[in-house]
Amino acid sequence: MITLAEDGKFLAGGMTLIPTLKQRLANPDRLIDLSGCALTGIEDEGQSIRIGAMSRHVDVAESAIVQKSIPAVADLASHIGDRQVRNRGTIGGSLANNDPSACYPSALLALDGTVHTQRRSIASEDYLTGMFDTDLEEDEIVIAVSLPKPEKAAYMKFPNPASRYAMVGVFVAKFSDGVKVAVTGAGEDGVFRAGNLEAALNADFDSAAIADGVISSDGLMSDIHASAEYRAHLICEMTRRAVKACR
């Protein structure tokens, strides 16, 4: 159907796309609503959980499977936007948009999850290609997301008090073979893995292992909300808090 539309767009929960249309920042000739496509449902697949793309943030936050298997992801979902946004916004929509300040991309990256489309499965590192950019083709739809279960994990965000988007959000995931740390809200190219923080936590998984200054402000966003230097500071602090909160 999308091939019939010259400049069509897929519509998930619409919490980003509808405001974008209202501001005339996008002008598709057709919208294809995915809400009737049976892309919901959350399943425990043993080593990982599989979340249907049209699962709303409230569905993920309240899912017994997510709460038990990866409570950090349930917690992340329960703090996106506000209740009205969580009643509409979806994990697939968030990951397809890959907003540099969105929460979900950090979970996908830190958990080394996989994005499933109607024709292939894409590893997180290949999928997240930059600010508002993904490896998705124009006519490709996110069907579901698989997230491996870590030993423990936590997500900490410093929300912008007005928009509640992450000014900095850090997802820490500890697996048997190492620690992964993904940072959202801060990078000029969107979400990124913080190798310095991972090295420190692989040596000693303790909040005290994160020294101030271990994160450089190079490549971090600077805007009216926070300077790159402040964001670098927040990354260290949010990582410490995430390590303390890991479960």
Binding site: G14, I18, K22, D33, S35, Q84, R88
Partner: peptide, 12 residues
């Protein structure tokens, strides 16, 4: 469920 009616199309 409570939602923001300004961010939903009538068609939805």
């Amino acid at each position: 469920e409570s939602v923001k009616a300004c961010s939903i199309l009538a068609a939805q």
